[in-house]
Simulated assay, not measured.
Amino acid sequence: MTILRAERLLIKMITLEDASFLLALMNDTDWILNIGDRGIKLFSQATRLFHRSIIHSVYKLTMALFGLSFHRERVGLI
């Protein structure tokens, strides 16, 4: 679901299609240093995390993660 679209900026709710980005993000050196290693090393683990944590947050806690993209390059989560 797109929240905001501008000429160079896109903010949308993350979906299962973003699992590979989530995997790369959680294995980034800065993520591990500042947030911690969550042990997500495989794509299947990232999709399982998406289903267990992110879907749960949306439907049970009414909170969501949004993906931030510039020129179709995913740059972060908000």
Rank of each mutant, 00 (worst) to 15 (best):
M1Q: 04
M1L: 04
M1W: 00
T2S: 11
I3P: 02
L4W: 00
L4C: 05
L4V: 07
R5W: 01
R5T: 07
R5L: 02
R5V: 01
A6N: 01
A6C: 01
A6W: 00
E7Y: 01
E7G: 05
L10S: 13
L10P: 05
I11V: 10
I11A: 07
I14H: 03
I14F: 03
L16A: 15
L16R: 12
L16H: 10
L16G: 14
L16C: 11
E17A: 15
E17P: 06
D18P: 00
D18Q: 00
D18E: 02
A19E: 01
A19I: 02
S20N: 13
S20Y: 03
L23W: 02
A24C: 13
A24Y: 04
L25R: 03
M26R: 03
M26K: 05
T29M: 01
T29D: 10
D30H: 05
D30Q: 12
W31T: 14
L33D: 14
L33Y: 12
N34M: 08
N34Y: 12
N34H: 09
G36T: 08
D37M: 09
D37A: 13
D37P: 08
D37G: 15
R38E: 09
R38N: 11
G39C: 11
G39K: 04
I40W: 00
I40M: 02
F43Y: 09
S44W: 01
S44R: 05
Q45R: 03
Q45L: 05
L49Q: 10
F50V: 10
H51N: 08
R52D: 12
S53G: 12
I54C: 15
I54A: 15
I55T: 09
I55F: 00
I55G: 06
I55E: 12
H56S: 15
S57I: 02
V58W: 01
V58A: 12
Y59M: 10
Y59Q: 15
Y59K: 12
K60S: 06
L61Y: 05
L61I: 13
T62S: 13
M63K: 08
A64Q: 01
A64I: 01
A64K: 00
L65Q: 07
L65N: 07
L65R: 07
G67N: 04
G67D: 03
G67P: 00
L68C: 04
S69F: 09
H71S: 15
R72H: 09
R74Q: 06
R74C: 10
V75I: 15
V75W: 06
V75F: 07
V75S: 11
L77M: 04
I78L: 06
